[in-house]
Nucleic acid binder design. Sequence first.
DNA 1: TTGTAAGCGTTATCAA
DNA 2: TTGATAACGCTTACAA
Lengths: 349, 349
Amino acid sequence: MKSDRSAGKVTLADVGRVANVSAITVSRALRKPEMVSPKLRQRIEEVVAELGYVPDPVARALASDRTDVIGVLIPSVTNSVFADVLRGIYSVVEGSPFSVQFGNTRYSVLEEERLLRIFLSQRPAGLIVSGIDQSEASTALLTQARCPVVQIMETGPAPVDMMVGFSHRDAAHDATRHLIDGGYRRIAFFGARMDPRTQRRLEGYTQAVKDAGLFDESLMITTPRASTVELGCQMLSDLLARTQDVEAIFCNNDDLALGVLFECQRRRIAVPDDIGLCGFNDLEMMAVANPPITSVRTFRQEMGRRAAEMVLMRVAGEEVPEPVVDLRYELMARQSTRACEEGRRRRVP
Amino acid sequence: MKSDRSAGKVTLADVGRVANVSAITVSRALRKPEMVSPKLRQRIEEVVAELGYVPDPVARALASDRTDVIGVLIPSVTNSVFADVLRGIYSVVEGSPFSVQFGNTRYSVLEEERLLRIFLSQRPAGLIVSGIDQSEASTALLTQARCPVVQIMETGPAPVDMMVGFSHRDAAHDATRHLIDGGYRRIAFFGARMDPRTQRRLEGYTQAVKDAGLFDESLMITTPRASTVELGCQMLSDLLARTQDVEAIFCNNDDLALGVLFECQRRRIAVPDDIGLCGFNDLEMMAVANPPITSVRTFRQEMGRRAAEMVLMRVAGEEVPEPVVDLRYELMARQSTRACEEGRRRRVP
DNA sequence: TTGTAAGCGTTATCAA
DNA sequence: TTGATAACGCTTACAA
């Protein structure tokens, strides 16, 4: 008699009993059909269907010391940037026998480390982590991990294993150059959250304005708060309360940019004629705003897709031809940064 | 000698050996400390720390026939509505020994069913599913599930187990009434995706306009496409190409409403004077748009939080005092629906 | 309070 | 090609 713990679950042994073969043969028939004679294979398949056998992933994991779970660590579940990445990952994983498990690090390196330990104890098939700023302990854990690891969202000099991202510094630098080239001189920076990637965007901005001799610390507004549209409104209000001498604003992301746009509309500040405006990420709405807002397009779904593909390839034993990928970015120049023909005039003399 | 399969992993038996106790005592010391004498407990804790023992959740799951994983099935990973729900769930689960695993059903009942089978085979501690429109098979699976189940996002007459949501029909009805009460007569409905919840919003709208004798099928625009801001722009353009006789628009969600607003700005259509505008969900940006947009606030984080709490209570063996919760909604009336003092005039006579 | 023995459902290993 | 046996690391049931 079966123990009552198992609650009537159909096991490999049950299938074997009915099909008159051993459990291990059933296991093989399901995992490596070519190793079982056609005759037996068919009989087993029939019994599996008849009994409604479903393999137990937990038992499989314990016995084989591996799972079909790909662990994904992202800093935020609400940020649409990461939602896009997840969509990319799902698009690849959905067609495979693998599944995805996330962890939400909430932009905390310590939380990331804690989650990493938990995930690793679950024998993941692969691991996808965000960014390149892991703690020393996390880096050690990842290096020792006995599964493929992909760092996403960013590129950097020392990949733990594989990597797919882009340079936030370069992207911000180019966006700032775009404003400078458009004739804007007094260019502000609005930054929220100030996570490592935002920091590097700030560096790119700073470099560009310094190189052009346009650096002015009083034009930088940053906050550790998460970015919202409302925050964009407030930042513009704060800046204008301090100085009217602003010609353009580079926002660390599109939420802020949208807030700036709304606030400009309320204050009858013409975009791009009074103030030029550039966002970051190129959310869908940027292209249809009034006016359309210039932004830096990043390939978020593609990052997720590529990362998942890399993991699957390695799990399948294939070699990944390009284990470090820089996906770049694209400056989507729109009406919000159309510079005047004869150079920018200051808004207030 | 240990088998090489385990790759040097520290086990309960290892800890026991060093601490001079049996493995089961170590197990108890970690799970039910009060059952172990203080002396042994302390010695064991020291050895655990010394050896860096980490419990193996896979082995635990196999032995105890349960996991600490709460399965969550949502229709979309990119829709910010569900992102908010997830945040609520995380806020509760993060402080517990439980973890979350999602599935993305992509608004497909069949995919939901498939995922449900997978999840159930993994002995979840609890299950949170979206909506009340599961397939017959899924409902059967959920009914038989040996774990707590919560349906979220919606309320309905026949909960499988527990439920926390609100009535989309009532919410849409009230929003439409708000427009009618504001003096608007020619009220359009814009709907995207047309999933079951959107359908019920449409029903609420239809009921309200019919009751007021204002029903006009030609004012309803729906599409199976996912909602985007751009789609909102297009829908307005389509509607206006067909008729100028429109006084207000109730959008099935805020993305569409934002698109309508941008398109109105471009066409110099004054909101709310030429056209009244109401969204659904009350995303953060609605309050700071220009003008601020009326929307129906729903308590998405709260839904996630409550659902997770219900699961945890039941897992802990406690009784859930209120297993079916209607969280209601709140109409956030803003400038975009400010009706004229002396009743609405038609925009075009 | 602590320990022994027997699983949990699967797969690795080695033998037939 | 098939099977017997022994893990995998932990917990349940029961005994001391």
